[in-house]
Design a protein around this nucleic acid. Structure first.
Lengths: 131, 131
DNA sequence: CTCTGACTTGAACCGCGGTTCAAGTCAAGG
DNA sequence: CCTTGACTTGAACCGCGGTTCAAGTCAGAG
Protein backbone atom coordinates (compact mmCIF):
# COMPACT_ATOMS: atom_id res chain seq x y z
CA UNK A 1 0.00 0.00 0.00
CA UNK A 2 1.18 3.49 -0.87
CA UNK A 3 0.59 6.67 1.04
CA UNK A 4 -0.48 9.85 -0.69
CA UNK A 5 3.04 11.27 -0.86
CA UNK A 6 4.30 8.13 -2.56
CA UNK A 7 1.49 8.16 -5.11
CA UNK A 8 2.18 11.82 -5.71
CA UNK A 9 5.86 11.15 -6.23
CA UNK A 10 5.30 8.25 -8.61
CA UNK A 11 2.50 9.89 -10.58
CA UNK A 12 4.00 13.34 -10.75
CA UNK A 13 0.82 14.86 -9.33
CA UNK A 14 0.53 16.82 -6.08
CA UNK A 15 -1.27 15.43 -3.03
CA UNK A 16 -3.83 18.20 -3.37
CA UNK A 17 -4.52 17.13 -6.96
CA UNK A 18 -5.04 13.54 -5.77
CA UNK A 19 -7.53 14.68 -3.13
CA UNK A 20 -9.21 16.82 -5.76
CA UNK A 21 -9.50 13.83 -8.10
CA UNK A 22 -10.99 11.85 -5.26
CA UNK A 23 -13.70 14.45 -4.67
CA UNK A 24 -14.49 14.29 -8.38
CA UNK A 25 -14.64 10.51 -8.14
CA UNK A 26 -11.78 9.73 -10.49
CA UNK A 27 -9.92 7.70 -7.89
CA UNK A 28 -10.62 6.13 -4.48
CA UNK A 29 -8.11 5.21 -1.80
CA UNK A 30 -8.07 1.50 -0.93
CA UNK A 31 -8.51 2.39 2.73
CA UNK A 32 -7.22 4.52 5.58
CA UNK A 33 -4.60 4.24 8.21
CA UNK A 34 -6.21 6.41 10.83
CA UNK A 35 -7.13 9.47 8.80
CA UNK A 36 -4.42 8.86 6.26
CA UNK A 37 -5.28 7.52 2.85
CA UNK A 38 -3.61 4.36 1.65
CA UNK A 39 -3.65 3.42 -2.01
CA UNK A 40 -3.40 0.24 -4.03
CA UNK A 41 -0.49 0.38 -6.49
CA UNK A 42 -3.08 0.01 -9.31
CA UNK A 43 -4.11 3.57 -8.74
CA UNK A 44 -0.97 4.54 -10.64
CA UNK A 45 -2.12 3.05 -13.94
CA UNK A 46 -5.49 4.66 -13.44
CA UNK A 47 -3.74 7.98 -12.97
CA UNK A 48 -1.84 7.42 -16.21
CA UNK A 49 -5.10 6.80 -18.00
CA UNK A 50 -6.53 9.97 -16.48
CA UNK A 51 -3.47 11.94 -17.48
CA UNK A 52 -3.66 10.66 -21.03
CA UNK A 53 -7.36 11.45 -21.27
CA UNK A 54 -6.79 14.95 -19.84
CA UNK A 55 -4.08 15.68 -22.35
CA UNK A 56 -6.44 14.50 -25.07
CA UNK A 57 -8.87 17.23 -24.08
CA UNK A 58 -11.35 15.33 -21.90
CA UNK A 59 -12.70 17.22 -18.92
CA UNK A 60 -12.58 15.77 -15.41
CA UNK A 61 -16.34 15.23 -15.51
CA UNK A 62 -16.13 13.31 -18.79
CA UNK A 63 -13.37 11.10 -17.45
CA UNK A 64 -15.39 10.39 -14.31
CA UNK A 65 -18.39 9.26 -16.35
CA UNK A 66 -16.13 7.24 -18.57
CA UNK A 67 -14.37 5.47 -15.70
CA UNK A 68 -17.70 4.51 -14.21
CA UNK A 69 -18.94 3.11 -17.52
CA UNK A 70 -20.46 -0.34 -17.80
CA UNK A 71 -21.07 -2.10 -21.10
CA UNK A 72 -24.85 -1.67 -20.85
CA UNK A 73 -24.52 2.07 -20.95
CA UNK A 74 -25.53 2.57 -24.57
CA UNK A 75 -25.69 6.31 -24.31
CA UNK A 76 -22.10 6.38 -23.18
CA UNK A 77 -21.11 4.17 -26.10
CA UNK A 78 -22.59 6.71 -28.45
CA UNK A 79 -20.76 9.50 -26.67
CA UNK A 80 -17.53 7.57 -26.99
CA UNK A 81 -18.04 7.01 -30.70
CA UNK A 82 -18.77 10.74 -31.08
CA UNK A 83 -15.66 11.56 -29.12
CA UNK A 84 -13.63 9.24 -31.36
CA UNK A 85 -14.75 11.25 -34.37
CA UNK A 86 -13.96 14.51 -32.60
CA UNK A 87 -10.53 13.24 -31.74
CA UNK A 88 -9.99 12.32 -35.35
CA UNK A 89 -10.73 15.87 -36.44
CA UNK A 90 -8.32 17.15 -33.81
CA UNK A 91 -5.63 14.83 -35.10
CA UNK A 92 -5.96 16.42 -38.53
CA UNK A 93 -5.80 19.90 -37.06
CA UNK A 94 -2.77 19.04 -35.01
CA UNK A 95 -1.06 17.47 -37.99
CA UNK A 96 -1.48 20.67 -39.97
CA UNK A 97 -0.39 22.70 -36.99
CA UNK A 98 2.76 20.65 -36.60
CA UNK A 99 3.59 21.07 -40.29
CA UNK A 100 3.01 24.80 -40.05
CA UNK A 101 5.19 25.10 -36.99
CA UNK A 102 7.96 23.17 -38.64
CA UNK A 103 7.73 25.44 -41.65
CA UNK A 104 7.54 28.57 -39.53
CA UNK A 105 10.67 27.61 -37.67
CA UNK A 106 12.59 28.04 -40.94
CA UNK A 107 10.48 30.55 -42.81
CA UNK A 108 11.83 34.06 -43.49
CA UNK A 109 8.56 35.92 -43.98
CA UNK A 110 8.07 39.11 -42.01
CA UNK A 111 5.79 38.91 -40.16
CA UNK A 112 5.73 35.14 -40.16
CA UNK A 113 1.95 35.01 -40.23
CA UNK A 114 2.00 36.57 -43.68
CA UNK A 115 3.82 33.61 -45.22
CA UNK A 116 1.69 32.30 -48.11
CA UNK A 117 2.53 28.69 -47.37
CA UNK A 118 1.42 29.27 -43.84
CA UNK A 119 -1.82 30.86 -44.96
CA UNK A 120 -2.53 27.98 -47.30
CA UNK A 121 -2.52 25.60 -44.35
CA UNK A 122 -5.36 27.49 -42.74
CA UNK A 123 -7.22 27.91 -45.99
CA UNK A 124 -7.04 24.10 -46.25
CA UNK A 125 -8.30 23.77 -42.70
CA UNK A 126 -11.19 26.08 -43.43
CA UNK A 127 -12.13 24.20 -46.58
CA UNK A 128 -12.07 20.94 -44.69
CA UNK A 129 -14.31 22.30 -41.95
CA UNK A 130 -16.96 23.09 -44.52
CA UNK A 131 -16.57 20.02 -46.75
CA UNK B 1 -15.42 47.03 -43.66
CA UNK B 2 -17.29 44.81 -41.19
CA UNK B 3 -18.78 45.79 -37.89
CA UNK B 4 -18.29 43.68 -34.79
CA UNK B 5 -21.62 41.89 -35.12
CA UNK B 6 -20.79 40.85 -38.66
CA UNK B 7 -17.34 39.56 -37.68
CA UNK B 8 -18.98 37.71 -34.80
CA UNK B 9 -21.53 36.15 -37.12
CA UNK B 10 -18.97 35.07 -39.70
CA UNK B 11 -16.41 33.83 -37.22
CA UNK B 12 -18.81 32.13 -34.85
CA UNK B 13 -17.38 34.06 -31.91
CA UNK B 14 -19.27 36.48 -29.69
CA UNK B 15 -18.63 40.25 -29.75
CA UNK B 16 -17.38 40.01 -26.18
CA UNK B 17 -14.85 37.39 -27.24
CA UNK B 18 -13.65 39.66 -30.04
CA UNK B 19 -13.18 42.55 -27.59
CA UNK B 20 -11.40 40.17 -25.24
CA UNK B 21 -9.05 39.08 -28.04
CA UNK B 22 -8.36 42.70 -28.80
CA UNK B 23 -7.32 43.41 -25.21
CA UNK B 24 -4.98 40.45 -25.43
CA UNK B 25 -3.60 41.81 -28.69
CA UNK B 26 -4.64 38.96 -30.93
CA UNK B 27 -6.59 41.21 -33.26
CA UNK B 28 -6.92 44.95 -33.94
CA UNK B 29 -9.85 46.71 -35.57
CA UNK B 30 -8.91 48.56 -38.77
CA UNK B 31 -10.50 51.70 -37.34
CA UNK B 32 -13.58 53.17 -35.74
CA UNK B 33 -16.81 54.67 -36.88
CA UNK B 34 -17.41 56.95 -33.93
CA UNK B 35 -16.88 54.57 -31.04
CA UNK B 36 -17.75 51.52 -33.10
CA UNK B 37 -15.07 49.19 -34.27
CA UNK B 38 -14.76 48.45 -37.96
CA UNK B 39 -12.77 45.48 -39.18
CA UNK B 40 -10.93 44.55 -42.36
CA UNK B 41 -12.31 41.31 -43.83
CA UNK B 42 -8.83 39.81 -43.33
CA UNK B 43 -9.52 39.62 -39.63
CA UNK B 44 -11.62 36.55 -40.41
CA UNK B 45 -8.69 34.46 -41.59
CA UNK B 46 -6.72 35.61 -38.59
CA UNK B 47 -9.55 34.43 -36.37
CA UNK B 48 -9.52 31.07 -38.10
CA UNK B 49 -5.82 30.79 -37.42
CA UNK B 50 -6.44 31.72 -33.79
CA UNK B 51 -9.23 29.20 -33.49
CA UNK B 52 -7.08 26.47 -34.96
CA UNK B 53 -4.20 27.30 -32.66
CA UNK B 54 -6.52 27.37 -29.64
CA UNK B 55 -7.94 23.99 -30.46
CA UNK B 56 -4.38 22.71 -30.80
CA UNK B 57 -3.77 23.65 -27.18
CA UNK B 58 -2.00 26.99 -27.51
CA UNK B 59 -2.86 29.58 -24.89
CA UNK B 60 -3.99 33.09 -25.80
CA UNK B 61 -0.65 34.44 -24.61
CA UNK B 62 1.30 32.02 -26.80
CA UNK B 63 -0.78 32.91 -29.82
CA UNK B 64 -0.25 36.60 -29.19
CA UNK B 65 3.53 36.16 -29.11
CA UNK B 66 3.36 34.01 -32.16
CA UNK B 67 1.28 36.46 -34.19
CA UNK B 68 3.70 39.23 -33.40
CA UNK B 69 6.68 37.13 -34.49
CA UNK B 70 9.27 38.40 -36.92
CA UNK B 71 11.83 36.21 -38.65
CA UNK B 72 14.69 37.61 -36.56
CA UNK B 73 13.14 36.29 -33.38
CA UNK B 74 15.37 33.27 -32.94
CA UNK B 75 14.09 32.45 -29.51
CA UNK B 76 10.59 32.19 -30.89
CA UNK B 77 11.81 29.91 -33.66
CA UNK B 78 13.18 27.58 -31.04
CA UNK B 79 9.93 27.71 -29.14
CA UNK B 80 8.05 26.87 -32.33
CA UNK B 81 10.29 23.92 -33.06
CA UNK B 82 9.74 22.73 -29.47
CA UNK B 83 6.04 23.18 -29.88
CA UNK B 84 6.12 21.17 -33.12
CA UNK B 85 7.66 18.28 -31.21
CA UNK B 86 5.10 18.61 -28.44
CA UNK B 87 2.32 18.59 -30.98
CA UNK B 88 3.76 15.45 -32.49
CA UNK B 89 3.60 13.70 -29.12
CA UNK B 90 0.03 14.85 -28.72
CA UNK B 91 -0.85 13.44 -32.13
CA UNK B 92 0.38 10.03 -30.99
CA UNK B 93 -1.60 10.26 -27.77
CA UNK B 94 -4.72 11.30 -29.61
CA UNK B 95 -4.29 8.51 -32.12
CA UNK B 96 -4.17 5.95 -29.34
CA UNK B 97 -7.08 7.61 -27.62
CA UNK B 98 -9.16 7.47 -30.79
CA UNK B 99 -8.36 3.77 -31.23
CA UNK B 100 -9.26 3.10 -27.61
CA UNK B 101 -12.51 4.97 -27.91
CA UNK B 102 -13.42 3.10 -31.05
CA UNK B 103 -12.68 -0.15 -29.29
CA UNK B 104 -14.53 0.87 -26.14
CA UNK B 105 -17.62 1.70 -28.13
CA UNK B 106 -17.90 -2.01 -28.99
CA UNK B 107 -16.18 -3.66 -26.04
CA UNK B 108 -18.18 -5.78 -23.59
CA UNK B 109 -15.90 -5.59 -20.56
CA UNK B 110 -17.45 -4.63 -17.25
CA UNK B 111 -16.30 -2.14 -16.22
CA UNK B 112 -14.95 -0.98 -19.56
CA UNK B 113 -11.75 0.33 -18.00
CA UNK B 114 -10.80 -3.22 -17.07
CA UNK B 115 -10.62 -4.36 -20.71
CA UNK B 116 -7.13 -5.79 -21.33
CA UNK B 117 -6.93 -4.36 -24.83
CA UNK B 118 -7.77 -1.00 -23.37
CA UNK B 119 -5.14 -1.32 -20.68
CA UNK B 120 -2.54 -2.29 -23.24
CA UNK B 121 -3.04 1.02 -24.99
CA UNK B 122 -2.05 2.90 -21.88
CA UNK B 123 0.79 0.57 -21.11
CA UNK B 124 2.07 1.41 -24.61
CA UNK B 125 1.62 5.10 -23.91
CA UNK B 126 3.56 4.77 -20.67
CA UNK B 127 6.37 2.89 -22.34
CA UNK B 128 6.62 5.53 -25.05
CA UNK B 129 6.77 8.33 -22.52
CA UNK B 130 9.84 6.79 -20.98
CA UNK B 131 11.61 5.59 -24.16
C1' DC C 1 4.55 10.07 27.19
C1' DT C 2 5.80 13.85 24.30
C1' DC C 3 6.99 15.78 20.24
C1' DT C 4 7.19 16.40 15.40
C1' DG C 5 5.88 16.72 10.96
C1' DA C 6 3.25 14.53 7.47
C1' DC C 7 -1.20 13.97 7.05
C1' DT C 8 -6.47 15.57 7.40
C1' DT C 9 -10.42 18.93 6.47
C1' DG C 10 -13.10 22.82 4.41
C1' DA C 11 -12.85 27.21 2.55
C1' DA C 12 -10.70 30.69 0.09
C1' DC C 13 -8.01 31.76 -3.66
C1' DC C 14 -5.66 31.46 -8.42
C1' DG C 15 -5.08 31.94 -13.72
C1' DC C 16 -7.42 31.01 -17.89
C1' DG C 17 -10.80 32.16 -21.22
C1' DG C 18 -14.18 34.27 -21.64
C1' DT C 19 -19.58 36.19 -20.29
C1' DT C 20 -22.56 39.29 -18.06
C1' DC C 21 -23.92 43.51 -16.31
C1' DA C 22 -24.75 48.51 -15.67
C1' DA C 23 -24.14 52.67 -17.44
C1' DG C 24 -23.15 55.45 -21.18
C1' DT C 25 -22.53 56.78 -26.45
C1' DC C 26 -24.04 57.58 -30.85
C1' DA C 27 -25.40 56.39 -36.12
C1' DA C 28 -29.21 55.97 -38.65
C1' DG C 29 -34.10 56.02 -39.56
C1' DG C 30 -38.50 58.42 -39.06
C1' DC D 1 -34.72 66.79 -33.77
C1' DC D 2 -35.86 62.60 -31.27
C1' DT D 3 -35.81 57.87 -30.60
C1' DT D 4 -34.01 53.40 -30.78
C1' DG D 5 -31.12 49.83 -30.39
C1' DA D 6 -26.61 48.26 -31.48
C1' DC D 7 -22.58 49.59 -30.00
C1' DT D 8 -19.02 51.28 -26.11
C1' DT D 9 -16.62 50.86 -21.44
C1' DG D 10 -14.93 48.83 -17.03
C1' DA D 11 -15.91 45.79 -13.48
C1' DA D 12 -17.84 41.83 -11.65
C1' DC D 13 -18.74 37.24 -12.37
C1' DC D 14 -18.44 32.27 -14.24
C1' DG D 15 -16.71 27.20 -14.67
C1' DC D 16 -12.59 24.63 -14.89
C1' DG D 17 -8.73 22.55 -12.70
C1' DG D 18 -6.52 22.77 -9.38
C1' DT D 19 -3.37 25.34 -5.12
C1' DT D 20 -3.03 27.49 -0.81
C1' DC D 21 -4.21 28.31 3.76
C1' DA D 22 -5.58 27.72 8.62
C1' DA D 23 -6.73 24.72 11.87
C1' DG D 24 -6.79 20.24 13.51
C1' DT D 25 -5.33 14.98 13.86
C1' DC D 26 -2.36 11.41 14.75
C1' DA D 27 1.55 7.65 13.63
C1' DG D 28 5.82 6.78 14.76
C1' DA D 29 10.46 8.22 16.48
C1' DG D 30 12.87 9.33 20.71
Amino acid sequence: MLDIAEVARQSGLTPSALRFYERRELITPAGRNGLRRKYHPEVLSRLMLIDCARSCGFTIAEIARFLAARPRDEELRLRMADKAREVDVRIDQLTRMRDSLQHAAFCTHDPLVECPEFKRTFADAAREEKG
